[in-house]
């Protein structure tokens, strides 16, 4: 993935460009930071304020809509609360068809949570080995995996379906779970990270203490790689949680659906069954709350990870 261009060329041009700006705003008083003018500041706040509305109003609408019964949903201001029926809606959603929605949530947690955990572990072991051991074929393996990063996940969905139907494993939990535990990007990131943050001296010391290689990995190295592991976990978690093509093509049985796919299925039949509308909206809200909370809790690591990749 040589998507990134050297910045040397850009560096070179700076010196010649900047002095040209001298006359435009007048010289700043020497010795202290220039105070920004009022108009640029107000303009910046205005732009950010307007777009805050753009980003948050849809979610606000969803929150409000999920607190209303059907009559209020149609008859009252869509952006403000009416009679508070949120818990009735949730109870109805959980009771609908023997709680199939809860089943979907559980499925998503298994596919995405457990899947991302396994994917992170496998990727970390492989990336670590590629970083810390010398063996023939090491670069070849790494280059093939790097090529895998560029293969769009949707390009694999159809052939995976064809393969799984050969062994009669379509429409099973494994047909969605197993392809999700492979993260070439994870191998790439953990290798880069292990090279930078797991010192060889530490491994040698651990060996002198008599610890085996595998034990050293699980007790010492994995801790040093932790920020990268959180990043890999998050990316893979999001990728699996959002995956649409794989469940679409693999699954027929409702009880195996992940929650996003179940909501899609309900939403597609709203025209025949209008009572589903409230379930879709409440279900959508409940399904994104854990994601938003996870994101906010882990965002420190998330940014570190983005940094690891983007900054070098």
């Amino acid at each position: 993935m040589s998507a990134v261009i050297d910045t040397e060329a850009a560096h070179g041009s700076i010196g010649s460009d900047v002095p040209a700006g001298r006359s435009r705003r007048g010289a700043a008083p020497a010795g202290r930071r220039p105070k920004e003018r009022f108009i640029p500041r107000a303009g910046a706040m205005l732009v950010m304020g307007v777009f805050t509305l753009y980003f948050l109003v849809p979610i606000w609408w969803l929150v409000v809509a999920s607190t209303k019964d059907r009559a209020d949903f149609l008859g009252t201001n869509p952006l403000w609360f009416a009679d508070f029926a949120f818990f009735d809606n949730v109870a109805a959603l959980f009771a609908y068809r023997d709680g199939v929605y809860l089943r979907w949530l559980l499925n998503s947690v298994l596919y995405a949570g457990f899947g991302a955990l396994v994917a992170t572990l496998l990727a970390a072991m492989c990336g670590y080995a590629l970083a810390k051991y010398r063996f023939p074929g090491r670069e070849a393996i790494f280059n093939v995996v790097l090529g895998g990063v560029l293969v769009p996940a949707t390009a694999l969905a159809l052939p995976l379906f064809l393969l799984f139907s050969r062994v009669q494993l379509t429409d099973t939990f494994w047909s969605v779970f197993l392809p999700s535990v492979v993260s070439p990007f994870g191998v790439y990131l953990t290798r880069v990270f292990a090279e930078a943050s797991v010192p060889d001296e530490l491994l040698e010391a651990s060996r002198l203490d008599g610890a085996g290689e595998v034990r050293t990995f699980f007790t010492v190295s994995i801790r040093l790689m932790f920020p990268a592991l959180v990043t890999v976990f998050l990316f893979q978690f999001v990728a699996i949680w959002n995956n649409f093509f794989l469940p679409l093509i693999m699954l027929r049985s409702e009880e195996l659906f992940p929650v996003t796919f179940g909501l899609y299925a309900w939403n597609s039949s709203i025209n025949q069954f209008p009572e589903l509308r409230s379930f879709v909206l409440v279900g959508a809200l409940l399904s994104i709350i854990p994601l938003i909370v996870t994101f906010l809790l882990l965002q420190r690591y998330w940014r570190t990870g983005l940094g690891t990749g983007a900054l070098k």
């Binding site: 993935m1 998507a3 990134v4 050297d6 990007f185 990131l189 880069v192 990043t231 983005l306 070098k312």
Partner: peptide, 9 residues
């Protein structure tokens, strides 16, 4: 997929 390290890549 996210960001890469150019030098390593």
């Amino acid at each position: 997929a996210p960001v890469t390290t150019p030098a390593a890549a």
